[in-house]
Nucleic acid binder design. Structure first.
Ligand code: FES
Ligand code: FES
Lengths: 145, 145
DNA sequence: ATAATAAAGGACAAAAATATCTTTTATTAT
DNA sequence: ATAATAAAAGATATTTTTGTCCTTTATTAT
């Protein structure tokens, strides 16, 4: 098991890719994004459609069309992507799968895991989509392989 | 998405259940365990079979048979269960799904996530299977609902 | 207007995870 | 020895996730 679903991994990588590409103002076709992050093209298309519905990415049809991020999207937190794709289970769910995580009916791992979960939440909440553009441009960070 | 697979959640809950039940020396049938943690009986049977092969639980066939944990099992870390069921992805895998997580080819979330992953690893490694028996007996902790 | 381009949408397919069913094997008590 | 018990093992079924295909819609350039 990974922290995020595969779908969510693709979504985050794609949005990072888009962020740094559309910082220069251009639009990016699905083919280029998929090649850039190493994902199945048509599956990624579905994912971006959903993110589009939720206002996390923008797109334009026709020649010179493609996906892009506006300034508003660039400043949104990663947690928005994660919630859109994987829901809030990773933030609020019980580590051992109890119906609901609570202080009054805690599972054995509750107190320890709550602390870790909160860290994940804070990390994703304070990190914005556009935050890594510089490093991506400089090739210090990777979205592929 | 949750932290662990459903299979792994069942596995941990079942082993906790067994731990506190076999502290008094008895064996516990699969029906009772499944009812105790709220899991599908026959699916749990498969899971416990696999844990048995790996020496994490013990079992005996026939009348008065059932599952139990010996002293050795009680002192093993939770990470053994997690690795047996979910593999080591949660400890070593890249948050964004890159083939391998490394310092030389880091994804944008690498440094932040590595810290969190390490915490999860340490938590599961230092926590033993038998550790919560007292609280379970006292009903302070829950394995169901 | 027409043709070309590119995303949107709906239907379908394959793979993996979860769950169930049936038969076999080992153990115990009679 | 025999019958009853309970886990092991193997086969099958269902559901969810992941991935693909095909048609439609919107936009642009000619
Ligand atoms: S009840 Fe399990 S993590 Fe809170
Ligand atoms: S490379 Fe992604 S978490 Fe280390």
């Amino acid at each position: 098991m990974a922290i995020f679903s595969k779908t969510c991994e693709y979504a985050i990588r794609a949005v990072f890719f888009l962020a740094h590409r559309s910082a220069q103002g251009g639009r990016v076709g699905i083919k280029e994004i998929a090649a850039g992050i190493g994902s199945p093209e048509l599956y990624l298309a579905k994912i971006l459609q959903e993110l589009g519905r939720r206002g996390l990415v923008s797109s334009a049809k026709g020649p010179n069309g493609g996906f892009y991020l506006d300034a508003a999207s660039l400043s949104r937190p990663l947690s928005d992507i994660v919630e859109a794709v994987d829901g809030d289970g990773i933030f609020r769910g019980c580590a051992l799968g109890l119906k609901q995580c609570s202080e009054t009916n805690p599972c054995p791992l509750h107190s320890q895991f709550k602390a870790i979960r909160d860290q994940i939440h804070h990390l994703l909440h304070r990190t914005t989509i556009g935050e890594f553009n510089e490093e991506l441009v400089q090739g210090l960070l990777s979205l592929k392989k």
